[in-house]
Amino acid sequence: MLIKIHPDNPNPREIKKVVDILKDGGLVIYPTDTIYGLGCDINNQKAVERVCRIKGLDLKRDHLSFICRDLSHLSLYTKALSNDVFKTLKRNLPGPFTFILPANNSVPRLFKNNKKTIGLRIPNNAIILEIVRELGNPVLSTSIKDEDEVIEYTTDPELIHEKYGNLVDAVIDGGFGGNIPSTIIDCTEHPMAIIREGAGIPEL
């Protein structure tokens, strides 16, 4: 199913359609402020495992990220943050960044692994933020890659639907995406370190 949603003024009816799919354990491909992502409700273990199968990820070994609606939502999944880290998040979010943060006890229960850290995103994209807000839970975030050696990430939602439509329950057409992923910043080290340069230049 290809669902067209306006990137600036998402229609609540279309958002609800996507949220209902996620609540039913469905998988959705959605736009962010960087590349298109593949995800599900992080509280649905079967859906998380399905995402991992599609991407060839190992839940116990690989690092997973998810999208929160705002900083107070994000704080539900992290240990207490230092003032420096909190100010950095506030300065840069929403934005094209993934912050590696110390995970609190609710995260291993969700993913059934012993990871001490979690990647968290608050993208500057009205569609996915509205979906997360309406759902009430974060959405798993993993990128849609392309086999093309020149263009690593597919930017056209119709082509994404052609390729992945039979593997997922919905693809959102929120316009063309970017082909540069988010910048990853490790906040568990002091000083904070950029571990992947991407679409954003953070203010640290």
Rank of each mutant, 00 (worst) to 15 (best):
T32P: 07
D33V: 08
T34M: 13
T34Y: 12
T34F: 13
Y36W: 11
Y36G: 01
G37K: 06
D41T: 07
I42N: 05
N43H: 15
N43L: 14
Q45I: 14
Q45G: 15
R50I: 10
R50T: 10
R50G: 09
V51I: 02
V51K: 00
C52V: 10
R53P: 11
I54M: 03
K55D: 02
K55H: 01
G56T: 07
L57S: 10
L57H: 09
D62W: 09
H63A: 15
S65F: 10
S65N: 08
S65C: 10
F66S: 00
F66D: 00
F66Y: 02
C68T: 02
R69V: 08
D70C: 01
D70Y: 02
D70R: 00
S72A: 09
S72M: 08
S72C: 07
H73F: 01
H73R: 01
S75P: 05
L76H: 13
T78V: 11
K79W: 14
D84R: 15
V85R: 06
T88D: 07
K90R: 10
K90A: 09
R91F: 11
L93F: 07
G95M: 03
G95T: 05
G95H: 03
G95K: 00
P96V: 15
F97M: 13
F97K: 07
T98I: 10
F99G: 07
L101Q: 03
A103L: 02
N105C: 12
R109F: 10
F111R: 04
N114D: 02
N114H: 09
K115Y: 09
K115W: 06
K116R: 02
R121P: 00
P123N: 03
P123F: 05
N124K: 06
N125V: 03
N125C: 01
A126E: 08
I127Q: 04
I127Y: 01
I127E: 01
I128G: 04
I128C: 06
L129C: 10
E130S: 12
I131P: 04
V132N: 05
V132H: 04
V132W: 04
E134D: 08
G136W: 06
G136P: 03
V139M: 12
L140W: 01
L140T: 02
S141T: 12
S141N: 10
T142D: 12
T142E: 10
I144D: 03
K145L: 15
D146H: 13
E147L: 15
D148N: 13
D148M: 12
V150D: 11
I151T: 13
I151Q: 11
E152F: 15
E152T: 14
T154E: 12
T154M: 14
T155E: 01
D156F: 12
P157D: 06
E158C: 14
H161D: 00
E162P: 11
